[in-house]
Write a protein that binds this DNA or RNA. Structure first.
Length: 659
DNA sequence: AGAGTGGGCCTTTTT
DNA sequence: GGCCCACTCT
């Protein structure tokens, strides 16, 4: 039991935050501007509920990323001096996974189901196309990974495939009947493999609630308080989920900022937040408009810009921070000069006492940072790029995990195929043939363990030798205990067979083996292979980051896309590429919804800055077609009154070509 | 005809 | 940095 009333909510919160925390019963929409203490408000709300006798397991906290959930739960624990055991907190996918592990049988799956990541889904779709003997060279058909994206968008927006194709992929209109066939096949093969893709975790969850009254009742009773973060970025499917679990108790509290909705391209629908009061009866709306982050000058730019949007809740951020310096608009000759300016200014600011740690460079699109990367390298300025290849999506990690997957879920054809193909002489064709034999035997894993010589496997000699090595590895994995000791199993796989594969197939073998050692250590903290696999599938974490505890190496400046900077803040922010044709993205200009989303993206970028903001753009761009092209400043700059920004005119020494 | 290489062109991304 | 396309060499 939580000791009641130890927290001083009045001191910790401002008036608006306090009202949300203490009067947050019923359906509540909290419109929280950037830097307005949104997370703080949420965790205090959770703490308040716990202090007032709500049991932890009656609370469901849904967040946008795994990291956000973890941080919030840690902070709640910090406040209350005890972990909120039993509280379900995580992403939609995470919650869906938990529910489906308990009730998979209702949907015709077993609780050991595998989770397919995007690459796996693409592979399986490709296999489905092969099943259907679709011409692989046909240009009018999307490739498997594009198919995956199309199907996924349809699921997440809960729209018919034909409609999604018509609006987003009109050039594939003719392919709709084929896509429908592939989709049906894909569904069948996922069932066969006892596998869920990411979308199925949401779809399956919704299905459990919609089609099983007992479960609907049980969870409606259990989750009396539902809190959702980043509500502006939810999609239609997620809306349906929230509406389902919000039935009955009537305590759905969502927090978000329609001005920061930037994920429409992947199916998020800002309508969810705009129309929340219409969808959830008797909604109370709270606004958090006091900004604790930025100077008034920076907020003025944000406020002026966002006013040009029409589809939004009216809002105006205010701050109590004293006046600072107006944001600088900095035209440069070209990309190279832009990079040189940023690098030079970073160094100046560091000399004046701002650590690199407190500075970030933001871009609209990833590739826009490449010129700057060269310049930073040249000048020895340490930087990290946020994003990139995810740790758990690297080939060597996925190869090893595939062994664990087939041990846990022997129906997982993808996992069998992947591990079989690691062996010389076995390619796609023989892997499939071997799998078919194993499957025909009833229990594939037992069949595989039994058949040492490959007597039942009808493949050429070379492939048979590969099979025998595979069989030996499999036998060494001590199947009965595998489920409880994932770390040992991984170590076994690596030492018995995969180490050799890494050494012969990858030039950076040492790094990869190091990754695998790290993976082993991480897996050792788990007592269940099943849980390990699920956690890994639902977890972010990038290449180069340590999986256990992330500690940045040295002082460094951050390079990031605007999207990936959401929720973060720095003292000094540079926003690159503020020219017409780069930002807003040209494709977004014709359509007002898309243009408004670009403007929200600009709003997000601007509000990352605490003290100083530099809006830079190249005045020319070189194109091999047309030669030198003059660039005008972005319309987002032109929309701003001259009085609220400083126009800079800088000459940057041309960087030497010393490389 | 098929494979390999170089150059140009890029939205944005979590699970 | 990655992917696709075109061009070239075998």
């Amino acid at each position: 039991m939580v000791t009641p009333y130890t927290l001083d909510y009045h001191t910790a919160l401002n008036e608006a935050q306090y009202r949300v925390v203490t009067q947050g019963d019923g359906h509540v929409l909290v419109l929280a501007g950037p830097g307005s203490g949104k997370t703080r408000t949420l965790i205090y709300r959770v703490a308040y509920l716990l202090e007032h006798g709500v049991p932890p397991n009656a609370i469901l906290l849904v967040t946008f990323t795994v990291k956000a959930a973890r941080e919030m739960l840690e902070r709640v624990e910090g406040l209350l001096q005890q972990p909120p055991d039993g509280l379900w907190g995580g992403t939609f996918h995470h919650i869906g996974n938990l529910l489906l592990r308990q009730h998979a049988d209702r949907l015709g799956f077993t609780p050991q189901f595998t989770i397919l990541d995007e690459e796996d889904a693409g592979d399986l779709l490709a296999a489905c196309c092969a099943d259907l003997k679709l011409p692989t060279t046909e240009r009018r058909l999307p490739q498997a990974n594009v198919m995956g994206a199309i199907l996924s968008l349809a699921v997440n927006t809960q729209r018919p495939l034909a409609q999604v194709v018509a609006t987003h992929y009109p050039y594939f209109a003719d392919a709709v009947p084929v896509l429908e066939r592939v989709a049906a096949r894909y569904t069948a093969r996922k069932r066969q493999a006892n596998a869920f893709d990411y979308d199925d975790l949401l779809r399956g969850w919704l299905q459990l609630l919609e089609q099983h009254a007992d479960l609907r009742g049980r969870y409606a009773e259990r989750f009396r308080y539902v809190l959702v973060d980043e509500y502006q970025d939810t999609n239609r499917l997620q809306f349906s989920l929230i509406r389902q679990i919000g039935r009955g108790h009537g305590n759905v509290l969502v927090v978000g900022d329609d001005a920061q909705a930037i994920y429409a391209f992947r199916g998020a629908d800002v309508t969810n937040i705009l129309e929340f009061p219409q969808h959830f009866p008797d909604t109370t709306v709270f606004k958090l408009e006091m900004n604790y982050r930025s100077t008034p000058e920076i907020l003025a730019v944000a406020n002026h810009s966002i006013q040009h949007n029409t589809r939004q809740f009216p809002k105006a951020l205010t701050t109590m921070r004293p006046a600072g310096t107006p944001p600088a608009v900095v035209p440069l000759m070209d990309q190279r000069q832009q990079a040189a300016f940023v690098a030079q200014r970073l160094l100046e600011l560091r000399d004046e006492g701002t650590p690199l740690e407190q500075m970030a460079v933001l871009v609209r699109a990833r590739y826009q940072a490449s010129e700057l990367e060269l310049e930073l390298t040249r000048r020895n300025i340490p930087y990290v790029i946020r994003g990139g290849v995810r740790f758990f999506e690297q080939t060597h990690i996925k190869d090893v995990l595939a062994y664990l997957k087939l041990l846990v879920n022997p129906s997982d054809e993808l996992a069998w195929g992947r591990t079989l193909r690691l062996h010389d002489g076995i390619g796609a064709v023989y892997a499939r043939r071997i799998w078919q034999r194993l499957q025909a035997a009833g229990h594939p894993l037992e069949a595989a363990l039994r058949d040492a010589g490959g007597a039942s496997v009808d493949v050429p000699l070379r492939a048979k030798a590969g099979w025998q090595r595979f069989h030996k590895t499999l036998g060494a994995l001590e199947i009965p205990e595998a489920a409880q000791h994932p770390g040992q199993v991984i170590a076994e796989i690596v030492s018995r067979s995969y180490r050799a594969h890494v050494e012969t197939h990858f030039q950076d073998a040492r790094d990869r083996l190091e990754d695998l050692a790290q993976l082993t250590a991480f897996a050792n903290t788990y007592q269940s292979t099943e849980t390990l696999l699920a956690d890994l599938s639902l977890r972010e974490g990038f290449k180069g980051e340590t999986i256990t505890a992330w500690s940045p190496p040295d002082e460094h400046v951050v390079l990031s896309t605007i999207h990936q900077a959401k929720g973060l803040e720095w003292k000094v922010v540079f926003l690159l590429g503020m020219s017409d044709g780069q930002f807003p993205h040209p494709k977004a200009v014709e359509e007002s919804d898309a243009l408004e989303e670009e403007r929200r993206l600009f709003y997000v970028a601007v509000t990352r800055a605490k003290d100083e903001l530099y809006l830079t753009y190249p005045m020319t761009r070189y194109s091999s077609q047309t030669g030198e092209v003059l660039l005008r400043p972005s319309r987002f700059l032109q929309e701003l009154p001259d009085t609220i920004v400083d126009q800079w005119s800088v000459q940057v020494a041309d960087p030497a070509f010393d490389d």
